[in-house]
Design a protein around this nucleic acid. Structure first.
Lengths: 178, 178
DNA sequence: CCAATCCTTTTACAAATGTTAAATAATCAC
DNA sequence: GTGATTATTTAACATTTGTAAAAGGATTGG
């Protein structure tokens, strides 16, 4: 989507680009100024605790956005942690800056709406994946979607992202090898 | 959110309000101009076919929006059917009219963004419901959320919405009666 | 290189949910 | 009201997934 030079300059002003090493925690649960992070390089995971277990809610790859998206929208402290799993290059924008941007450069509001819409559709896909596919089908679909995921993300995070235990994932993989 | 008189008038022009009887199909799979329907009275369900079975993807009550929301956003033909389960009062807006509205009345674009955001958060809730709760917990939570749902929606639709078979739902209900 | 730690697989068993079919209950059309 | 249809429950059995514990592999820091 094309933007005017003024809007682009404004985005440049509020965006914060940087390189960060593997295992950096991009965001901690409890933060009240959540960022929206655009991944230029690297893989990250969004997770939170449920019954003292880490649950991987989202995996983000190059060209995608990774964010504690509920908190980003509501302005309340987030329950999510965000960790980069590889050395990464990240471009972040704080949500108060986003509000400023939308108010002063109305055309960016449309961009924002379209980005939320895109995320909505991805979440809708993920919802259908859970509602109507077995664990094995979800694993196959994930591999097709991200062919290099096995080299980049450890199996316990993948299991958690698929909503199954590591034991079940191991069983599925054992089936596959036959 | 307050809107100017001009925006309100424009919305009035494109909105289509009407009463429809129980069992009316609001939208058929394959349609290419999907509507977004605001429910003023009644209950509706959004469903689609998966392995020749009807799957209830969404239930909508008074004050909520019901829509083949993927198609509404993408402009592609929808796979969803929408049926009202009670005599209902509906206010519908076509997505091409929405685009016109957003372009000519920029303040409505913010309203649109906030509405999508709200729907995103609801879907996120539903996602977590599936990922981290048993069928029994999902049923309890649904009853708390919509206390009159048992009088208004038949159990097979509820089972489908919860992502379980009718048999499993019956078992859960039998447990409850003890 | 080695010990410690973390990651993954395997095993045995338990619990949850699905499948099929039949029985019962409720609703609808005439 | 009555018969037909639809909705819900129950039963028996199969399958999937979870839990806990142990064992084997891989990785890391000194």
């Amino acid at each position: 989507m094309p933007l005017s030079a003024e809007s682009v300059q404004a985005i440049d002003q509020i965006a914060w680009r940087r390189n960060i090493p593997k295992r950096t925690i991009l965001q901690r649960a409890g933060d009240i100024c959540p960022y929206f992070h655009f991944i230029e390089k690297g893989v990250g995971r969004v997770y939170y605790y449920h019954n003292e277990q880490e649950i991987t809610a989202w995996l983000g790859f190059e060209g995608q956005i990774i964010s504690a998206i509920d908190s980003f929208f509501t302005g309340k402290p987030t329950d999510y942690w965000i960790e980069m799993l590889e050395d990464a290059q990240i471009c972040s924008i704080c949500n108060t800056d986003i509000d400023w941007l939308f108010t002063h450069f109305p055309e960016t509001e449309r961009l924002g709406r379209l980005m939320i819409t895109e995320n909505y559709l991805r979440l809708d896909e993920r919802m259908k994946l859970f509602a109507f596919h077995t664990a094995e089908q979800r694993y196959e679909i994930l591999l097709r979607q991200f062919p290099d995921i096995l080299q980049r993300v450890s199996l316990r995070y993948i299991a958690s992202y698929l909503g199954i235990t590591q034991v079940t994932l191991s069983r599925i993989r054992a089936e596959f090898r036959q």
